[in-house]
Nucleic acid binder design. Structure first.
Lengths: 342, 342
DNA sequence: CTGAAAGCGCTTACAG
DNA sequence: CTGAAAGCGCTTACAG
């Protein structure tokens, strides 16, 4: 292990001078700077970031906290993977490292502060946390480093966020269904108390209202945004709704996949018997048995923005708004059937 | 930020005593140990791992290096995601952190040593590197920390690995195709010089040979194990083979997805016109237009083993063999059609 | 412009 | 059993 001592010795200068030269500080004669740099080069010197971190109180790493429900194995959303990749790419390019942390919902309360206090990272990016706004705000405002939430609505105005417009997602999806002639429309993916989902429901209701369709709460069922809950949700919708929906909006694609499984088991065809629309546009939806129509969210773009935002906060050159909103768009495939006028 | 100084002061002992008590070293009176622990508790003390790392020359983190071809955006294999999750879970549970590094193929040569020399992590796990054996061995043996490769064959006996039996994968897939009556069988996914793929080709040839089917090299085309190459590969197979194959084995599922796209574009049906078998068993294959028959590899299991293996090396309690091989099995769905006797 | 010293938060011999 | 000292590899005032 070659240290700054070695390069100082080889260059024939003091350690502090070597440090100044290496870090491009002002007030180092050109010739000595050159000597130091050459010595470093020759010795293949790489500064020890741990030592730097100790004195700078910064580690140039960012913790990516990905939350899942009760077990990591349920973290199966490819949308998360897309964002993780984009974040890592941008952050690495700017000389930062990404620390990957997986947390179950229960672990969040202890885990987020633990990670933040560990001093192992300079900032936190939270992906997929469903914790209630007050509670999450409570956790994040107590934490000694900047944090950013992704996908969900910001739990509090003081906490930076990168997300899409959840209300608009619900609205666009539902509106499209209505345009295609549907009037009994189900929705899977309500989590009471979680704004992200409430907004999607509100968007759904708004579209209904605009079209003069009465809201029927039996048509909106819970869903935790993991695949299984799509399966459970579609069953509920099929059994308990007073009127079977002709179309269903699932809050995300992964739940649509679950719904597809449930429908398949019941021998109900998509879109012949029931139409389906998702949200996210995860990869390879076009290869499904019934290619899924969905609201396309720019997942990589969001990851990149999240990285830029947190880096901006850290380096003091933040030019992004506190809450970045990203554009979604309808992606038509073939899981929604056109219904004739009633 | 509360430091060990604070807890020492509150407990009324010296810093070194506090340290010994906190670390459960022998030779600390029960009563003073209790005092220290209580003080730590009361102050909510969390040791600074950076400072510990500096003196212990260890950071309790492991670098996960995920390689992709020329751009990170091609790292789309859900199999990688599955393994990353499993590795992170096990490693976190044992008090280690995971540092996520994305590298393009070109960056590997510089990047792997850079990451290893950075002293930011105690060990390296490589996922998805296609670099030739000699070159990778050269890189990894020079590196100052332990490393482990996953999925691919070990580039050298001295380098730990966790993988499945690639020859057997190729053999099982091809044998099943033969049992289903196919005799003109294509394969996508040869990378000359990369043992992992050569083994799969050898398995393919072995099954052919056992069945007395002549090997036709026009039926084996290159593929880089990313989705696009499946599309390119199937086109090549369709156009250049003297005889169009009735079935194709793609080296992994993601290339099978690509092949499906190509076939769809040409209006060729699966399995009616051509049969397809993949390898990996990534999630949600049962929901595809034609549910893909594949060789199922225990991806999470592999991730867990990789984590255990590297932790074992680091902590000196390694009970796993240097090269861990994991069992694969045939997973029959409906992408392979039974052919009548010729 | 350069170097000696202090200090980041911890652990590890070692003296008492 | 306890504490003063040295040291991990670096950076940052500060004196010269």
């Amino acid at each position: 292990m070659v240290t700054i001592k070695d390069v100082a010795k080889l260059a024939g200068v003091a350690i502090s001078t070597a440090s100044n030269a290496l870090n491009g500080k002002y007030g180092v004669k050109e010739s000595t700077k050159k000597k130091v740099l050459e010595a470093a080069e020759r010795l293949n010197y790489v500064p020890n970031p741990i030592a730097q971190g100790l004195v700078n109180n910064s580690t140039k790493t960012i913790s990516l906290i990905v939350s899942g429900p009760s077990s990591y194995k349920f973290i199966t959303n490819p949308a998360f993977f897309e964002m993780m990749k984009a974040i890592t790419e941008v952050v690495n390019k700017r000389g930062y490292q990404v620390l990957l942390n997986l947390l179950t919902e229960e672990e969040e309360v202890q885990g987020i502060p633990r990670i933040a206090h560990s001093r192992l990272s300079d900032a936190l990016i939270l992906i997929g946390s469903r914790r209630g706004d007050e509670e999450l705000t409570e956790i994040l405002t107590k934490v000694p480093i900047p944090s950013l939430v992704v996908i969900r609505e910001p739990p509090h105005d003081s906490i930076a966020s990168v997300s899409w417009d959840n209300l608009r997602c619900g609205y666009m999806a539902t509106k499209y269904l209505i345009e295609m002639g549907h009037r009994t429309i189900g929705m899977i993916g309500n989590i009471p108390g979680l704004k992200m989902t409430e907004e999607r429901v509100r968007g759904y209701m708004l579209a209904l209202q605009e079209a003069g369709i009465a809201y029927d709460e039996a048509l909106v069922v819970e869903g935790d945004y993991y695949q299984d809950s799509g399966l459970v949700g579609i069953r509920k919708l099929l059994n308990q709704a007073s009127k079977r929906p002709t179309a269903v909006f699932t809050g995300n694609d992964v739940m649509a996949l679950g719904a597809m499984e449930g429908l398949e088991q019941e021998g109900i065809r998509i879109p012949e018997d029931i139409s389906l629309i998702g949200c996210d546009n995860i990869p390879n939806l076009h290869l499904l048995k019934t290619p899924l129509t969905t609201i396309s969210n720019p997942l990589s773009e969001m990851g990149r923005l999240a990285a830029r935002k947190i880096l901006g906060i850290l380096e003091g050159d933040d030019e992004l708004p506190q809450h970045v909103i990203v554009e979604s768009e309808l992606r038509i495939r073939s899981s929604v059937k056109r219904l004739g006028p009633m």
